[in-house]
Each structure stands twice: as structure tokens, then as C-alpha cells.
């Protein structure tokens, strides 16, 4: 396996190109501050959705507690960043937050991941609520008043870096033998177990990795939006993330990315319709699910579309 295959070089080139073009547009001012916020929202949502997709879409474990992990990252990031106002502090905050989220993910995952389906969903939801209540009552988090004046170190460079890193790492994980083990759990847990796969281990692994990246997204969020408080990370936030995953297609990374972009564009566009924006949003959600319940991409990736085309041609 050579790392520098043609495909990998192509991907690297595309990433660098996107980065430079957007950076250029930002510095020229064509992408103004407002569109920058939309871009930041998209990047953070991509990280959240892709990491939840690993848990829910690929491993088949229905989690409603992703915002809880996000909040751990956000608070660690914010507290460290407020003490150390430097890029070093920012990065330290991100990694401390991500590691703390992972740790909590493992601790919670080991007992709860024995549950299945909706029971797991309600248990993860409960866990996220417990995390939120704890943050609401701690002194260091300043309770309901929240933490304000968090310095903004998150910029396009870091957003792009972490988004790309998340997507590539999770993509590689899924393509590895670990990832295939996770997918086999989604398809049939008992069959997977009888093939000798340690299902608990892989479920906890997927859960922990998901929590890690959710922690990163949380830290980026707190650093970009200056202010956090516990109720931002309530169960409605978990549901927002789940909506992106389902809309994009469970088990499709490119689907999650597309859905994150689509939803961000949609909400930005809807901002103009002050009075009815939430009504339109809810209606769209219902209509999209009725007409396309498997999401935009289903379980396919964008690259699969090209492949199947080639196959069709060959058959034809």
C-alpha cells in the first residue's frame, strides 16, 4: 500500500485548492464576516454529523446524546482558553476537551452499549442530560450564566484542518478491519458475534471515537461563538445533529457532509423569514423524510455514484 497513490494525491490537491480559494475569498472580502459564520457552522456540523454517523450510521447504535460530548469539549476548551489566551491554549483546550469527551464516552459506553435500539437512545439521552445538569451546577462553568468572552482563535485554517482530519480519519477507520467489524454489528449483531467479533469492544470503540470528534467540534464552537451555556447543549442539539445524519443518509460520510452544507444554507436562507422560519423548517423536514426516507445519499458515497455508472456502462 503506497500512501502516495494517484487518488490520494488528487484528494490532497482538492483539499489544498478548496482551502486556498476560500482563504483567498475571505481575505479579498468576497466571503464577508456573515458568510464566514455560515462556513464555520458548516464545518462544526460536519465534524458532529460525521462522528455521529460513525456511531449511528455505521455501527448502528442509536445515540441521542451527542450534544453531551460536544458540551464536554466546549467547556474544557472554553475554560482552558480563558486561562491561556493563546493559540497554544486553544489547541490544548481542543485536545483536552476531546480526550475528556472520549473518557466519558468510554465510561458511559461500557454499561449502556449493552442496550439496544430505542433503549440505548433513551439511555444516551439521559446521559447527555446528566452531563448538562452537572455543568449547570458547577462553579467553574459559571452555572446558567455560562462562560462569556471566550477569545476567538477558531479561524478558517483550523476549521478546515479539523474538518478534513475528522473526515479522513473516520473514513479510514471505516475502511479498516475495525470499521468493517463495526458495520457487521449494524447489519446483524448476533451474526457478527458468532463470527468471533467482540461486539462490545467495537461498539465502545466507535462510541469513543465519536465522542472524541464531538469534543473537538464543541471546543471549536465555544472558541468561535464567544459564549457558551449549558442549555445550548440540550437534547434538541443532539436531535439537530441526528437530523443532519439521517438527512444525509445513515452510513454515508459524503451524505453527512452534503446535508450539513444543505441545512446551513437552508437556515441562512430562512433567516429572512423571521416569523415563519421554524414552521417552514419543520415542514421541509417532514416532507423530505416522507419523500426520501433513506436520506440524500442512502448508504452510498459520492464516489460510489461514479463507480456504479462505470459498471452500468460495462454491462451496457
Amino acid at each position: 500500500m503506497k500512501a502516495l497513490t494517484k487518488k490520494n494525491l488528487l484528494i490532497l490537491g482538492a483539499i489544498l485548492l478548496t482551502f486556498t480559494v476560500v482563504q483567498g475569498l475571505i481575505s479579498v472580502g468576497i466571503i464577508n464576516k456573515f458568510y464566514e459564520i455560515t462556513i464555520a457552522m458548516i464545518c462544526i456540523n460536519i465534524i458532529l454529523a460525521v462522528s455521529l454517523n460513525l456511531v449511528t450510521g455505521f455501527t448502528g447504535q442509536f445515540s441521542l446524546g451527542h450534544a453531551g460530548f460536544m458540551s464536554i469539549g466546549a467547556y474544557f476548551g472554553a475554560v482552558i482558553n480563558l486561562q491561556m489566551e493563546s493559540t497554544g491554549g486553544f489547541l490544548l483546550g481542543i485536545f483536552a476537551g476531546a480526550l475528556a469527551a472520549t473518557l466519558v464516552g468510554i465510561l458511559i459506553g461500557i454499561p449502556t452499549l449493552r442496550l439496544k435500539g430505542d433503549y440505548l437512545a433513551i439511555a444516551t439521552l439521559g446521559m447527555a442530560e446528566i452531563i448538562r445538569v452537572v455543568f449547570l451546577n458547577l462553579d467553574i462553568t459559571n452555572g446558567a450564566a455560562g462562560l462569556s468572552g471566550i477569545p476567538r482563535y477558531t479561524n478558517w485554517l483550523w476549521l478546515c484542518f479539523f474538518t478534513v482530519a475528522t473526515v479522513l480519519l473516520i473514513n479510514n477507520f471505516i475502511k479498516s478491519s475495525y470499521g468493517r467489524a463495526c458495520i457487521s454489528i449494524r447489519e446483524d449483531e448476533i451474526a457478527a458475534e458468532s463470527m468471533g467479533i467482540n461486539t462490545t469492544k467495537y461498539k465502545v470503540m466507535a462510541f469513543a471515537i465519536g465522542a472524541f470528534f464531538a469534543g473537538i467540534a464543541g471546543a471549536l464552537h465555544s472558541s468561535y461563538f464567544y459564549f457558551i451555556r449549558p442549555d445550548i447543549f440540550g437534547f434538541l442539539k443532539s436531535i439537530d445533529i441526528l437530523i443532519i445524519v439521517v438527512l444525509g443518509g445513515m452510513g454515508s460520510i459524503t451524505g453527512s457532509i452534503l446535508a450539513a452544507i444543505l441545512l446551513a444554507v437552508l437556515t441562512t436562507y430562512l433567516q429572512a423569514f423571521t416569523a415563519v422560519r421554524m414552521i417552514i423548517y419543520a415542514l421541509l423536514l417532514v416532507v423530505i423524510m416522507i419523500f426520501r426516507p433513506q436520506g440524500i445519499m442512502g448508504t452510498k458515497e459520492i464516489s460510489d455514484l461514479f463507480k456504479s455508472k462505470k459498471k452500468d456502462e460495462r454491462i451496457g
Partner: peptide
């Protein structure tokens, strides 16, 4: 008139 959904990030945006 705009609606920030009681969400600080939305208020910033």
C-alpha cells in the same frame, strides 16, 4: 426584525 431562536450562536450570526 430577526429571530435568534434563543440561541447565542444564532444571535452572533
Amino acid at each position: 426584525k430577526v429571530d435568534n431562536k434563543s440561541d447565542p450562536a444564532e444571535a452572533t450570526s
